[in-house]
Design a protein around this nucleic acid. Structure first.
Length: 435
RNA sequence: GGAGGGGUUCCCGAGUGGCCAAAGGGAUCAGACUGUAAAUCUGACGCGUAAGCUUCGGUGGUUCGACUCCACCCCCCUCCA
């Protein structure tokens, strides 16, 4: 691996990318990073069977550290994931069963691994699971060896805890209150085993990370550092990482490369440059070029396309990107009728949502229900909503608006006798396949 | 354990016997404009083509009629022990 940034001040570099919210002892950390190859860790709690785009921020940050010549440790929270982090949440979480969490751990371990280099000798990435050293610990040992170092007075002062205490209607359980202690202990263990001296995470992790720093000082007598990234924001204030279908996952079974590509392509104008900095690895020159092009004519979507392509390829590889581009081109260039039979077949293979009909004729309303296109704002799929969509001029078949609720589709009206492209609104398509 | 305050449609939040499928806001979806953007404007927003049906923590009750009154139960919050 090239140590392309080894001679550059990593902190400044990250700051330029908009990746630094808080840093502990910045001058000391800068020296620390410049004077040798260090070990840095970031934790991921297994709250689902896949990571999502929000997790890309710390994941790629770890990669940046590795590119700069440091060793990344990816910690999967098999133990902490069973507790639930009070940070960033306004109310108590549900606890997941142990075997479920362990299943998540395995998935996430595999998924996250592709973003880091495990081959390079000196600074090969490491994946660990805190379940390993937490599960066997007895309550007595935990309280005597670890808990003793924590002042409840200090813990109560932490933002994540304080918010839950002050906010009427939520409260916090002892279980979640203890999360910070476990995470702090993780840092100690990694510090002992791997000489890990830097922990990074989202800014909501600041309290947990600094608490771990303190614990290292108390238990090990050494200095450790903390760095956090700002929360990724959207210009309209809504939560980052959701598309119309919900969370944008990294797993291509849960979010197709096409949907993934569209997610980035559709980001707001004001967000595209910040996102390019955070989620891509373009160099300064390219970055400047895209910014100029974007500012000159945002309508051309130069930056959007570059962002979407780059991240899609990073996560889904060249094959995934190609598939995403094929579908995008077919659906958004008003050339539906010009597609060949093979093209249409390819769209299904590429991951365009597809619905098979084994009949000669089907009512449009029934199809809208069957394909799930007629979702209500509440998330239910109903015939009434299908009617409303048709009435409000939102439905197209093969690129033609349909206004008659009683419309029936059959093989006769299908492209090549086999395909209909159903469209709701501007961006929702389903391929109907007659078999 | 004691005292008090609460649980309303996805969220916040009005509603204290019929005019309530339930104000208002947010979120969401669609239409128009545009650039597969933002802002803005318009419409939809429990289910049903409709008649109608099912909702306001739960269960019973009072009443011609309850989200609104009564009883019991469950859950949450605050303070005290």
């Amino acid at each position: 691996m090239d140590l392309i940034m080894a001679n550059r001040d990593l902190i400044d570099h990250l700051r330029n990318l908009g990746l630094v919210a808080q840093v502990s002892a910045e001058d000391a950390l800068a020296d620390h990073l410049n004077s040798g190859s260090r070990t840095v860790y970031c934790g991921f709690d297994p709250t689902s069977d896949s990571l999502h785009v929000g997790n890309l921020v710390p994941l790629l940050a770890l990669r940046r550290f590795q590119l700069a010549g440091h060793r990344p440790i990816l910690l999967v929270g098999g133990a902490t994931g069973m507790i639930g982090d009070p940070g960033g949440k306004t109310e108590e979480r549900k606890l997941n069963p142990a075997d479920l969490v362990q299943g998540y751990v395995e998935k996430i371990r595999v998924q996250a691994s592709r973003f880091l280099d495990f081959e390079c000798e000196a600074i090969a990435a490491i994946v660990v699971d805190n379940f390993e050293w937490t599960a066997g610990m007895t309550v007595i040992n935990f309280l005597r060896d670890v808990g003793k170092h924590f002042s409840v007075n200090a813990m109560v002062q932490k933002e994540s805890v304080r918010r839950r205490l002050e906010d009427d209607g939520s409260g916090i359980s002892y279980t979640e209150f203890s999360y910070m202690v476990l995470q702090s202990y993780d840092y100690v263990v990694l510090n002992r085993r791997y000489d890990c001296t830097i922990q990074i995470g989202g800014s909501d992790q600041w309290g947990n990370i600094t608490s771990g720093m303190d614990l290292i000082r108390r238990m090990e007598g050494g200095q450790a550092f903390a760095m956090t990234f700002p929360l990724i924001t959207k210009s309209d204030g809504s939560k980052f990482g959701k598309s119309e279908e919900g969370t944008v996952w990294l797993d291509d079974k849960k979010t197709s490369p096409y949907t993934f590509y569209q997610f980035w392509f559709n980001c707001a104008d004001e967000d595209v440059i910040p996102y390019i900095k955070i989620f891509t690895f373009f160099d300064d020159v390219e970055m400047a070029r895209m910014r100029a092009a974007h500012e000159q004519d945002p309508g051309m979507r130069v930056a959007h396309i570059a962002l979407a392509k780059s991240v899609t390829e990073l996560v889904h590889g060249e094959t995934g990107l190609t598939a995403a581009l094929r579908i995008t081109d077919a659906l958004f260039s008003n050339k539906l009728d010009k597609l060949s039979e093979a093209d249409l077949g390819q769209l299904a293979l590429d991951g365009l949502p597809c619905h098979k009909v084994n009949d000669d004729e089907a009512g449009l309303i029934d199809l809208l229900v069957a394909t799930g296109l007629s979702v209500t704002p509440r998330g239910e799929v109903t015939a009434g909503q299908a009617r409303k969509f048709i009435k409000s001029n939102a439905i197209s078949v093969n690129g033609q608006k349909v206004s008659d609720e009683e419309t029936k589709l059959s093989r006769n009206t299908a492209l090549y006798g086999r395909y209909h492209v159903l469209q709701r609104g501007k961006k929702n398509h389903v391929l109907v396949q007659w078999i």
